[in-house]
Amino acid sequence: MLIHPWDAPREDAEWQQWLAAHDFGTLVVNGLDGEPPFAQPLHFLYDAEGGDSGEGGDGGEGGVVLTHLARPNPIWAALHANPEVVLSVVDDYAYVPGPWQADPAGPPEHGTPTSFYTAVQLRCRARVVDDPAEKAALLNRLVGHFQPEGGSAEVAVGEVPYGRLLSGLRGVRLEVLGVRAKFKYANHRTAEVRERILEKLAERAGPGDAAAREHLLRRRA
């Protein structure tokens, strides 16, 4: 992913706060010899602290990611062969027509169209979790994150309703080794062009436009 200096996060807190509100992405695992990479969409929980959470204390300085997948998933052989993976998360995207970005001194049709988006890529080392008790603890953390209002029984080894399902899935802990983040929102454009884009996004009000506009306003400040 190309990251121009003007699109880079200004501090770690910028991408961390964004990622805290986004918990669905794509886990990319190197394929076995002669095979393309695996790209697995999934929900996940990012823990920036990476401390001991009951599933093992292998969090790196960049935190840990918790997730799980079904045991029949074809990803496992490749993951065991090479545990170095990337978790890619992209959102808050919007298409920007060329005239919106045109130089005020030139014709609108000479403007260059582009895409606005936020992207965070976490380079990680994966550890597969098969121990039933550790797996149950990991799943309870995931359920607590996605269902903070409760309503589900606790996952416990050998107990209904979920104990019998534990064997059908495997947990995954991803130790975060490095981060690449990008906030692409006309950060290098003139104030006049950015104001025009803000107006156009508000007028169009399409999917993603409000979020893109908020990023543009925030980074302009």
Rank of each mutant, 00 (worst) to 15 (best):
N30F: 12
N30S: 15
N30Q: 15
N30I: 11
G31F: 05
L32C: 10
D33W: 12
E35P: 04
P36H: 06
P37C: 10
P37E: 08
F38A: 04
P41I: 00
P41K: 01
L42Y: 01
L42P: 01
H43C: 10
L45P: 09
Y46T: 02
Y46W: 08
Y46V: 02
Y46F: 06
D47I: 07
A48N: 11
E49Y: 05
E49G: 07
G50K: 00
D52Y: 13
S53W: 14
G54S: 10
E55T: 15
G57I: 13
G57Y: 12
G57W: 14
D58M: 10
D58C: 12
G59V: 04
G60W: 06
G60S: 10
E61D: 13
G62L: 05
V64L: 13
V65F: 04
L66P: 02
T67D: 11
L69V: 06
A70R: 03
A70I: 01
R71M: 10
R71C: 09
P72V: 07
P72H: 06
P74I: 05
P74C: 05
P74Y: 06
I75A: 01
W76N: 03
W76Y: 08
A78P: 02
A78T: 03
L79R: 00
L79K: 00
A81I: 13
A81L: 12
P83D: 14
E84T: 13
V85H: 09
V85W: 07
V85L: 10
S88D: 12
V90D: 11
D92T: 05
D92R: 08
Y93K: 09
Y93P: 01
Y93H: 13
Y95W: 13
V96W: 04
P97W: 10
G98P: 11
P99W: 06
P99E: 10
P99N: 11
P99V: 08
Q101R: 15
Q101Y: 15
P104W: 02
A105E: 06
G106C: 11
P107G: 12
P108M: 12
H110L: 13
H110A: 14
H110W: 12
G111W: 04
G111M: 08
G111S: 12
T112Q: 15
T112V: 15
T114V: 02
F116E: 01
F116P: 00
Y117A: 00
T118F: 01
T118Y: 00
A119I: 02
V120F: 01
R123N: 03
C124G: 09
C124K: 05
C124P: 04
C124A: 12
R127M: 05
R127Q: 09
V129R: 01
D130T: 07
D130C: 05
P132S: 06
P132R: 00
A133F: 10
A133C: 11
A133G: 14
E134Y: 07
K135A: 00
K135M: 00
A137T: 11
